[in-house]
Simulated scan of single mutants.
Amino acid sequence: MDIQKLMKQAQQMQAGMQKTQEELNAKTVEASVGGGKVTVVATGAGDVQSISIDPSVVDSDDVEFLEQLVLSGVQEAISKGKEMAASEMSKLTGGLGGMGLPGM
């Protein structure tokens, strides 16, 4: 086993992962819930950028419904962002999960 070759491959993978992480920070996902009444936009890193709420679901007598819609939208957007990130990272690692090393 050529250690220098292995080290070079590890450095290339690390650089690729850093570049992919930067790209994920710039990419966004959108999640709509409640028939499109609440829309949440988040980055691939899981940062929520915006929440849009249709005025028709704003009811002061039923705040819990709106809270649940917003929570569901945020959860879905973060989940989509994580899925996108996992997909992009697996392209880099070739599905090896960090070069086949446990915990990577």
Rank of each mutant, 00 (worst) to 15 (best):
30 E>G: 01
57 V>E: 02
40 V>I: 11
38 V>M: 02
70 V>F: 04
89 M>W: 00
76 E>R: 10
30 E>H: 01
64 E>R: 08
17 M>T: 04
84 M>Q: 11
97 G>K: 11
8 K>R: 12
66 L>Y: 01
13 M>S: 04
29 V>C: 01
67 E>G: 12
1 M>L: 15
12 Q>S: 06
54 D>G: 08
55 P>C: 00
12 Q>G: 02
43 T>D: 04
55 P>A: 04
2 D>Q: 06
14 Q>Y: 03
104 M>T: 12
2 D>V: 04
73 G>W: 05
81 G>T: 00
102 P>S: 12
43 T>L: 03
25 N>G: 15
29 V>W: 00
77 A>H: 10
82 K>Q: 14
104 M>F: 14
25 N>L: 12
78 I>V: 15
46 G>Y: 05
56 S>W: 04
41 V>R: 04
97 G>H: 08
66 L>P: 02
90 S>C: 05
47 D>S: 14
31 A>S: 05
34 G>D: 02
48 V>M: 10
70 V>T: 07
71 L>W: 08
12 Q>K: 08
40 V>T: 05
56 S>N: 09
42 A>W: 04
38 V>N: 01
47 D>E: 15
27 K>M: 14
28 T>L: 08
63 V>L: 07
45 A>L: 01
80 K>L: 12
49 Q>K: 15
102 P>R: 14
40 V>W: 08
103 G>T: 11
81 G>A: 00
90 S>V: 05
65 F>D: 02
89 M>P: 03
44 G>M: 04
25 N>T: 11
87 S>N: 06
38 V>Y: 01
3 I>Y: 14
23 E>I: 04
15 A>T: 09
